[in-house]
Amino acid sequence: MDNKTDKNLYTILFAVGMVVVVGGILAFLSTSLSPAITANEKIEKQQNILYALGINNNDGTSAIFIGAKEAPDAFKENVTEQIVLTYKDGEIVQTQTRQEFLDDKENGGFEPYLIDVKKQQTSQKEKGVRQLPLFVGKNKEGKTLYVAPIRGKGLWDAIWGYVAVDEDMVVQGTYFDHKGETPGLGANIKQRYFMDDFYGEKLLTDAGVFKGITVAKGNADPKNERKDDYKVDAIAGATITGDGVTAMIKKDLGLYVPYFQNLKK
């Protein structure tokens, strides 16, 4: 090392220069790529919702979305309505259709499926108010299903998902995803063998009380044949991620119960 690079002034100038150059490159890249990234994220949300509805390209064992190119058209065709419920202090105070939601200027003019669940959760915590989107669509058999987004915490970072239920709140399809769960363990919540277990599980007791579904260890039902036990089999080595799934189902899906009670009346 020659002496020049040991001087304090040089060190400081180098640090400043480096920050400016690297910061500039990253800022430029981020700005120029962000339209493409946002478009990809929109399509992914559509694919997620369609997946929960049962509209996907699944083969024998793996979960495969409908193609990114077909997704926007399939979404328009199969998701017939996007309801937005306004939840306030334990009650649903307003029900808007997609058109009403778009017309309401306070909402920012974006489609209901782009409602940021994380922001709504914060708003619920701070102000007691939350917008709950609910997507109405038909599965391949023509049965009307309701898809609700949920969000929670896994072991390392956020986990989220979409749950499709029928009007009795019996699960008809799920999609789970995560930001950074451990590959091979918690990350497997997005595998077919975990997601498919939820099919046919009930969320309400016969008396109509919301019970949720628990991701349970020692369930002793690996084939998941018992559909009325409010439990699915946990993934070995992924206890905390599984508990996160249990918690987000209980917390977020529970808020929709009044809507379904009204639906039956």
């Binding site: 040991d6 060190t11 480096m18 690297v22 990253l26 890249l29 981020s30 790529l33 493409a36 990809n40």
Partner: peptide, 27 residues
């Protein structure tokens, strides 16, 4: 590279590289 802050410089280089790759892939 000034020897006093070489570890920080290395970190910046690797972090920048990884973020660039991540952003391009996302797009």
């Amino acid at each position: 590279i000034p020897s006093k802050i070489r570890i920080i410089v290395q970190l910046v280089v690797v972090a920048a590289l990884v973020i660039i790759v991540d952003q391009v892939l996302k797009a």
